[in-house]
Design a protein around this nucleic acid. Structure first.
Length: 494
DNA sequence: TTTTGAGTTGTTCGA
DNA sequence: GTCGAACAACTCAAA
């Protein structure tokens, strides 16, 4: 470690903290470790659109990143440091910056995707050759993907034993506080050493500016994240188990984008929920359910780490022969929220407007695309990647494969969600549908999830003409289901 | 090595 | 209207 070397360090020699998926000051091990050296700290974010293999960010993620970086820069500013933004291939830029600034070490938090790991490994080597320290830590997960394995030393493929093994490790480490003192490294102008301004990254949509719904819905940044967690712990956690399936209520935590960008630490989230349960402020079962959802995030990262091509290849190879029959017009209708199935359309429009979709509705819309429209899950995965503010390589891929039946511990193929039954069950008053599909809002609740079944008089009273104001169903549910089951028959038992 | 119990989220059909 | 079975076996993980 640099600070243990006998020779006294030149006070001007900085250390770099390279912030990536941990855009926060509290519970940030990389930042805290950098601060503990006592040397000036140079915080850096690298917008890497040049390294081979890295998946370009989707549109909604770019919007979020812009605001998250702006918030982080403000928070660092208040702590006496300045965020330096660089653009380009991290493998070149990071060692170069460290060398030119005379940094003695670089600190970062680990990433678990294949291309990201390749970049990080290369940088570790380059820094080593330059005699610069490289210190990685875990700021993303409760447990490293290689620390929880089966007794046979294999990665888990089933969630429940994984979750059991995770629990057997006991409480996760407590969250760290914000570093108390940050000695800022001497500033340099933004254009020195390849630095760029946030605006020059061009992350925000301009023509057209479609981000209005995102702005109304979200507050990116550490403060927004903590406010969301506090709000949820106070009023959402009690009853979570029952309410989490209801898209018409605010029943879920809505922490996913904040967790994805690391604006709040997973350890802080875990302990807040566990403490609320231990203090009997919320029912044990509600807290456990939320913790198990956090464990699904861990499981997805476990899968991605051990299966780096999770987003592009079927986890179960027998699905490689699956006879997909996508129809471009139908896929387009799905994307636009014009399938004629209200709960599906409501979900797709919520996604388009807010960059987020309720979890239950994600399953319904995904099942509809994959099974009723017989469209490869990768098509849906790509659409969500572009549209979700919480788009996450591990969660997105694992979840799409789960619905398709091609994934780990996946839903059985014969489980085909019926959008009408799902709508009636989880949006019983139709409030969610009315909110996002206003053209059918005048329908009575009895017909809100199946407008085509409404008598002509009811349609007229609701001022609705199917095929004009709102589409007729683009596919028959029974036929779609039968076609899906027949298609699955061809890969069954392979 | 073999055995055993179990596996996020559903729908349909027929008694 | 309600309820259990069928749907498809298969693989995982641990004993």
């Amino acid at each position: 470690m640099p600070q243990t070397k006998p020779r006294a360090r030149n006070q001007q020699e900085p250390v770099i903290v390279w912030l990536r998926d941990n855009l926060r000051l509290a519970d940030n091990r990389a930042l805290s470790a950098a601060a503990r050296t006592g040397q000036p700290v140079l915080p850096v974010y690298v917008y890497d659109d040049a390294s081979p293999g890295l998946r370009p960010l989707g549109g909604a993620s770019r919007w979020w990143l812009h605001h998250s970086l702006a918030a982080l820069a403000g928070d660092l500013d208040a702590a006496g440091a300045r965020l330096n933004i660089l653009r380009g291939a991290a493998g070149t830029i990071v060692p170069q910056l460290a060398q030119r600034r005379g940094a003695t070490a670089v600190f970062w938090s680990r990433r678990y995707g294949g291309p990201e790991r390749a970049v990080d490994t290369q940088i570790k080597t380059s820094l080593g050759e330059l005699g610069i320290g490289a210190h990685s830590c875990n700021d993303l997960l409760l447990v490293e993907p290689w620390e929880v394995m089966t007794r046979g030393g294999e990665p888990f493929k089933v969630f429940t034993p994984f979750w059991r093994a995770l629990r057997e490790r006991g409480e996760p480490a407590p969250p760290l506080p914000k570093p108390r003192t940050l000695t800022a490294a001497a500033m340099s102008p933004p254009d020195a050493l390849g630095g760029v301004t946030l605006d020059s990254l061009d992350l925000l949509p301009m023509r057209p500016d479609w981000a209005g719904g995102l702005r109304e819905t979200w507050t990116p940044g550490e403060q927004g994240a903590r406010a969301r967690l506090t709000q949820f712990a106070r009023s959402g956690l009690d009853g979570y188990m029952a309410n989490r399936d209801r898209p018409d209520l605010t029943g879920t935590s809505r922490l996913s984008p904040h967790l994805h960008f690391g604006e709040i630490g997973i350890r802080e989230a875990w302990h807040r929920v566990a403490r609320a349960s231990a203090d009997h402020k919320v029912p044990h079962a509600d807290a456990q359910k939320l913790l198990s959802e956090l464990a699904w995030r861990e499981f997805s990262n476990h899968l991605l780490f051990h299966t780096p091509d999770l987003a592009t290849r079927n986890f179960q190879p027998r699905f490689d022969a699956f006879p997909w029959q996508p129809d471009r017009r139908q896929v387009r209708a799905w994307q636009r929220g014009r399938t004629g199935y209200p709960i599906v359309d409501a979900g797709m429009r919520e996604l388009w407007h807010t960059g987020w979709m309720h979890n239950r509705v994600r399953m319904i819309t995904a099942s509809f695309l994959i099974k009723h429209l017989l469209t490869d899950w990768r098509t849906g995965e790509a659409w969500f990647w572009d549209a979700l503010v919480d788009a996450d390589a591990a969660n997105n891929a694992a979840s799409w494969q789960w619905v398709a039946g091609s994934g780990a511990d996946a839903a059985p193929y014969f489980r085909v969600f019926n959008p009408v039954l799902q709508g009636r069950k989880f949006d019983p008053e139709g409030d969610y549908v009315r909110r996002w599909v206003p053209e059918i809002a005048g329908l009575p609740t009895a017909h809100i999830h199946a407008p085509w079944d409404a008598p002509a008089s009811v349609l007229a009273a609701a001022k609705l003409e199917l095929g004009r104001g709102y589409p007729k169903p683009i596919i028959d549910l029974d036929e779609g289901r039968a076609r899906a089951l027949a298609a699955f028959d061809t890969v069954k038992g392979r």
